Amino acid sequence: MQFLRSAYERFSTLIHELIKFGLVGAIAFVIDFGGSNLLTFGVGLGPIKSKVISTIVAATFAYVGNRFWTYRHRQQSGLAREYVLFFVLNGIALIPPMITIGFRTYSLGMHDLLSYNIAQAVGVAIGTLFRLWSYKKWVFLAAPELTEQSADGAGVRPHPEVKAQADPLTTR
């Protein structure tokens, strides 16, 4: 039991980030899939154009949700910088769905709803792995570790509040 408690304490920040990232991502997923399907099959836009438009709307929602909820405890490096970088990374993460949708549409000649959504799902899954890694690495940076002088004069140690927020994968 003590092992589970210490593991949770060590990884609690990561666990909470993953849950919040997943919730924001799930809502963005619905916005992306629903919008893409609506634009492709309801409005009649091309499948690639529909995917780009729905991704832009979903990414805007995801940025706001991740910045102000999932990663609110992380350092802000300037909203303009984060926003631009966030969308550049989302543009890169859009490549896998565009490839799978394009292959399904133009190489296989499939134009049905089911194959469209399967192609979207495969591409989005690949893109999501990239986004999870890249957001933490370049957009929502870890808070800098503050230090305080120890009472016994032994030297500088991490500030207790910041240590609790440190990324457990990089904390030793």
Rank of each mutant, 00 (worst) to 15 (best):
S134F: 08
G65L: 06
T100E: 09
L89C: 14
F86R: 12
T70I: 12
E145T: 07
M110H: 09
G91T: 05
Y63P: 05
S54Q: 04
T70K: 09
G34H: 11
P97M: 00
F130R: 08
A142S: 15
L79S: 04
A142K: 13
Q120R: 14
A62G: 08
A119F: 01
P47Q: 10
L89Q: 07
G35R: 08
R72Q: 00
I56N: 02
L79P: 05
S54F: 13
V52S: 01
G34F: 03
L39P: 08
Q120C: 15
M98S: 12
G44S: 05
S36D: 03
I56A: 09
T55S: 07
A58D: 01
I118D: 15
P96L: 09
L113K: 15
P96V: 07
A58K: 00
F33H: 04
I101N: 06
F86K: 08
F41T: 08
V43M: 06
Y135P: 08
M98C: 13
G44P: 01
A58C: 01
G65K: 11
A59K: 01
V139L: 06
V124D: 06
L38W: 09
G34C: 01
T55E: 03
S115R: 13
L85Q: 05
L39N: 04
V43K: 00
V122F: 12
Y135D: 11
F130M: 11
S50N: 02
G44T: 07
G42A: 03
N90I: 09
V88Y: 13
A121L: 14
N90L: 11
S50A: 10
F61G: 02
L38F: 12
Y71V: 13
T128E: 06
R131P: 00
S115N: 14
T40H: 10
V124H: 03
S50M: 01
L108Y: 04
R81N: 07
N66A: 04
L38A: 14
I101C: 03
D112S: 06
N66M: 01
A142D: 15
M110Y: 03
Q76M: 11
F87G: 05
T55V: 01
V124E: 01
T70S: 12
Y135C: 04
V122N: 03
T105C: 14
R104H: 10
T70W: 10
G127W: 07
I53Y: 10
A143G: 06
I95D: 08
S50Y: 03
I126R: 02
I101F: 06
F41K: 05
L89W: 12
G127T: 05
L114S: 13
Q120S: 14
A93W: 02
F86D: 10
A119H: 00
E145Q: 13
L141W: 05
N66W: 04
V52R: 01
I48N: 02
V57C: 11
A125K: 02
A59S: 10
G34M: 05
T70V: 11
F87C: 03
E145A: 04
S77H: 15
Q75W: 04
G78N: 13
M110F: 05
G34I: 00
V57R: 04
R67F: 09
P96N: 09
Q120G: 14
A58Y: 08
